[in-house]
């Protein structure tokens, strides 16, 4: 799978996929998209990296760390980071639900703020649900990447 064509293509498309994924996440409240779709698309980008460059590429090639070949996949630092990501994502989602309790509203109540006259955009609506959606994004990315990298290493 790690052919030159594959690597060249991956180099070109992975950044595009990541940008699209992030934009899908941000505009999700008003246009098709959202945390879940953005998350899955991000994972797709990582899956392409894994396919094109192998599983150790992220640790060795990008982060510049040495990889112990006999080490279990679940103890890789990258996998640890994925695990943290979904744990923190879950904490963010739950935490964003707890905030309304401070204001005497039910768990997971959301609100939004409209900003007029913002440069470039003109009008900008900011929903508190974005924080919750960010939690969704993190859990999806962290969870799926954990599964992907651990299972892939097997």
């Amino acid at each position: 799978m790690t052919t030159v064509i594959m690597r060249t293509t991956a180099r070109a498309i992975v950044p595009i996929i990541l940008v699209v994924a992030i934009s899908l996440f941000f505009e999700g409240h008003n246009l098709p998209g959202g945390g879940f779709i953005g998350g899955v698309l991000t994972v797709t980008a990582f899956a392409i990296i894994y396919m094109a460059f192998g599983l150790d590429f992220l640790e060795r090639g990008i982060l510049g760390r040495d990889v112990d070949p006999g080490k279990g996949p679940s103890r890789d630092r990258v996998v640890v980071a994925y695990r943290r990501l979904f744990a923190y994502g879950f904490a963010i989602a739950v935490g964003s639900g707890l905030v309304p309790l401070l204001f005497g509203r039910p768990f997971l109540t959301q609100t939004y703020e409209s900003l007029e006259g913002v440069p470039i955009y003109g009008y900008l609506g900011i929903a508190s649900a974005l924080v919750f959606d960010f939690g969704v994004y993190c859990v999806v990315v962290g969870g799926l990447l954990t599964i992907l990298s651990v299972v892939g290493a097997e």
Binding site: G28, H29, N30, L31, D133
Partner: peptide
Amino acid sequence: RGGGTNIVNV
């Protein structure tokens, strides 16, 4: 109430 035009996401 949700401040978003994407009903699915809201």
